[in-house]
Design a protein around this nucleic acid. Structure first.
Ligand code: MN
Ligand code: MN
Ligand code: ZN
Ligand code: ZN
Lengths: 145, 145
DNA sequence: CGCGCTATGATAGCGCGTATCAATACCCCA
DNA sequence: TGGGGTATTGATACGCGCTATCATAGCGCG
């Protein structure tokens, strides 16, 4: 299914900015992008899209189920393509590296805990903040020297 | 140990604002408070403390280990007294009610997962967003009608 | 006490994200 | 294929949570 068809299926008008942003997520090797990351990457490719539009399109894509939004406890939201399989995240405090994992047992227990308290689990956020002991850690964070 | 002694022990000067804010957390029945909650509650008690001071004192208390800060995926940080025992949170999406839980097995698996990926677990955030099915849910959220 | 130095409070500033609004461009239909 | 109505865009102002600034107030040691 082409990107154009995908947007139409979701009832979204097929526009330049939407196609460009969708293509960006499908092509880039960086899975988790902030709005500003997207804006910058578009600029790099000489694609002129306003920052407000980037924010709007990301929100629309999230509501449409194309993207998933996370808040990794820094102040900016990150988005990633919704590839269908749920997963949670390991986040290196030193270098900002993001790694994904899925644990069936944890997922099960979360439901059980909610149920035990008289609730129905709707969603969850599980962030494991780790310290990378490797010297060759990629993605060195700007704040660390 | 009196609050005054507690502050001295931590190397913090004993001041009016610090005593008042510490007393507030020890007395209120609301465990999880935003900076603005604290500010408002002080105002209610006719205690004049600047908002900037509230923010500063909360940060200091967090660094001193008196308070713990959380980000419950709304845009404001919440603080609670550090009572020594780690726990995670259930958060009702309808009414904003917060409930606490602790699951030994989940904690264990988190460490195992980090280790398996070559990291050392430093901290974590586990937020279970639930839907309260009870009509008598307390703490009705302002945004819901 | 009285002095030095930290804490405080009013307010300006910052960063991320949203609202506004005129101009643009998509899309439907003739 | 082209024109018109309407959704989208982009520049920018604004909102909100929080931090930095800086002159004043007050803690605490001698
Ligand atoms: Mn991911
Ligand atoms: Mn708690
Ligand atoms: Zn999960
Ligand atoms: Zn935990």
């Amino acid at each position: 299914m082409t990107s154009t068809d995908q947007l139409k299926t979701l009832g979204l008008k097929v526009t330049g900015p939407r196609l460009k942003i969708l293509a960006l997520f499908e092509q880039t090797d960086q899975r988790h992008l902030t709005a500003d990351d997207v804006y910058r990457l578009l600029m790099t490719d000489s694609v002129d899209v306003g920052l407000a539009t980037v924010y709007r399109v990301l929100t629309q894509f999230e509501h449409a189920g194309i993207l998933i939004r996370h808040h990794f406890d820094n102040d900016k939201a990150v988005y990633e393509l919704n590839r269908g399989g749920h997963h949670d995240h390991l986040l290196c405090l030193q270098c900002g590296h993001v790694e994904e994992f899925f644990d069936e047992e944890i997922e099960r227990r979360q439901h059980a805990i909610a149920k035990k308290h008289g609730f129905k689990l709707a969603e969850h956020a599980l962030h494991l903040y780790v310290e990378c002991e490797r010297k060759d850690c990629p993605n060195r964070r700007k704040t660390s020297n």
